[in-house]
Amino acid sequence: MKRKIPLIITFTVGVLLIIAEFIPHKPFGTLSGELEEWFLVISGFAIILGQLSLLKVNTFKIKYKQKDWQYSIITLASFFFMVGFGLLWGTGKSSGIFGHGEVISAVIGIKPFDYLFQNVYQHLQATMFSLLAFFIASAAYRAFIGRNLESNLLLIAAVLVMLGNTTVGGLLTSWLPESLNFLHLPKVSEFIMTYPTTAGQRAIMIGAGLGIIGSSLRIILGIERSYLGGE
């Protein structure tokens, strides 16, 4: 029962959704719409499960004084501040348990949740990603060493695309006559993006698409069962 019923559910739901695409009338059309709404709600619970799991892991870390347990206090405190502010006074246009928090908003300027989001979360997120600019530079050094034809193509395409999208790139080839306009760096960059890059992306999309179709069929037919766990 623990394995067979989930397999039957997966098969039924998967087949129903595929049939509904070809027969969009009752009951298939409405059923597929309803199933997609259920999916959304269950996915919401899955996100909550993730947060609760994070809480569990960090609480255990503090309880058993594991390595670097002090940092878990900061994680939990940040989590509770964000959740507390959001649930108590709401976010944006949504109201929380205590309404829109007009009193506290009058002091801070905006809702506490939005204040944390704008002044801490957004800065942390942008800086985290901008940090990658430094690491991508070292990765580029390793990736762009022209050892063979493939790495040379990678190097040339990346350099031309980057140059073509900057003002300097445009200035470098601005002296070219009209007849050689196609060699103007922004044009070269556009050409690379429109044709060879699209060709490569398209091949990847078709390959990955066929792979996903195959995997979906394996799951629906019960051949692939790893999502059920080992027990």
Partner: peptide
């Protein structure tokens, strides 16, 4: 860790609302 906590909190509240 502040980033991890705030991210988790943000998505929790977003999921609820």
């Amino acid at each position: 860790q502040v980033f991890v906590g705030l991210s988790a909190g943000y998505w929790f509240v977003y999921t609820i609302f």
